[in-house]
Simulated scan of single mutants.
Amino acid sequence: MNEAALRRIWLCADDYGLADGVNRAIRDLIARGRLNATSVMVVGSAIGRAEVAALQETAAASPRCAIGLHVTLTAPFRPLSMYFRPLDGGLFLPFPKLLRAGLLRRLDPGLIEDEVSAQLGAFRELFGRAPDFVDGHQHAQLFPQARDGFLRAVKAAAPEAWVRQGGRRTPLGKRLGAPKALVLDMLSAQFRKRAAVAGIPFNPAFAGAYDFSKQPDFGVLMAEFLDGLPHDGLVMCHPGFVDETLRNLDPFTNQREAEHAYLASDLFPTLLAANKVTLS
């Protein structure tokens, strides 16, 4: 197939560093050539020199794989910066409370900037360089006020990085049928404007949000994600193997194994070829 006729997309596995089972699943898919990006939680319970070295070795042996920072501003994780507020029992706020605080203008963008800067510094300490891109756990980088501090920190500490926005290029009728994705569209509109003013590049379109509690067929979802996604568009995914650490930290468990199983199967490259999509 003519390479010029293919759409290159980013398929990014979030949450590297969350748990050992998540790390193993992500490295397995990178080694298979089924991912071309992953974002790292430097505040996760399974991140350290050994896990970083394993990721770097796997990525170096595969086709180009971008490694980014998964900025984390929500519970059940703790901030790296000393004076971060507001907190809930020493932890970040749960994401609904953080979003509400941003909408009500109760966040301090300066404290957000300090925390994002601290996480960028931790990434540089672990990897010896700045991240290729920067995104956010539970899309917190898109929240009002949080986005201002986030973008300032990225501009200062990782000026060559691109950032993730969550807006799609789909007809309004389809967007109305996906409430979670519609909220991301609205939050992302302001995020894109601010990123453009700051001169920070971002992905042209986004896909990957779904209601994981319903445990839908991930192959069907992936076909929907690819439909209409432009060149350099980004699809978010969350592959993983369930372990006790993951169960204690995140409600998104068994569906991670379903995502890994599909992406590791022969069905996935067949779908890419049928849609004239490449990860290379």
Results as ranks from 00 to 15, higher is better:
Leu99Ser: 10
Ile9Ser: 00
Leu103Phe: 15
Phe206Leu: 04
Ala181Glu: 13
Pro251Arg: 09
Val71Asp: 06
Gly166Glu: 10
Phe92Ile: 07
Leu226Thr: 03
Asp28Arg: 12
Lys193Met: 14
Ala223Val: 04
Leu182Ile: 10
Ala59Lys: 04
Ala258Arg: 10
Ser62Asn: 06
Gly89Val: 08
Asp28Ser: 13
Leu176Lys: 07
Ser62Ala: 14
Arg32Thr: 01
Ser39His: 04
Arg147Thr: 07
Ala156Met: 09
Asn248Phe: 12
Leu182Ala: 11
Leu184Pro: 03
Ala264Leu: 00
Val116His: 03
Gly166Pro: 08
Gln215Gly: 03
Pro144Val: 06
Ala118Glu: 10
Ala161Met: 09
Ala189Gln: 13
Gly240Thr: 03
Asn254Gly: 14
Asn275Leu: 14
Val163Leu: 08
Arg32Asp: 06
Thr253Ser: 05
Ala195Lys: 10
Arg194Met: 15
Arg192Gly: 12
Val43Ile: 08
Leu87Met: 11
Asp135Val: 09
Ala118Ile: 07
Met186Thr: 12
Ala140Trp: 05
Ser45Lys: 15
Asp232Met: 14
Asp132Phe: 07
Ser81Val: 10
Leu271Asn: 03
Asn248Asp: 15
Gly228His: 00
Leu246Gly: 06
Phe202Tyr: 15
Asp185Cys: 01
Gln145Asp: 10
Phe150Thr: 08
Leu279Asp: 01
Phe241Asn: 10
Leu107Tyr: 07
His70Ala: 06
Gly48His: 04
Ala59Cys: 05
Leu176Tyr: 03
Ala66Leu: 13
Leu187Asn: 00
Leu104Thr: 13
Leu184Thr: 01
Gln119Thr: 02
Ala178Trp: 11
Ser117Pro: 00
Ser39Asn: 05
Lys97Asp: 15
Leu263Phe: 03
Phe84Lys: 08
Leu111Met: 08
Ser265Gln: 01
Ile47Asp: 04
Gly44Ala: 05
Leu99Arg: 02
Glu3Thr: 15
Pro179Tyr: 07
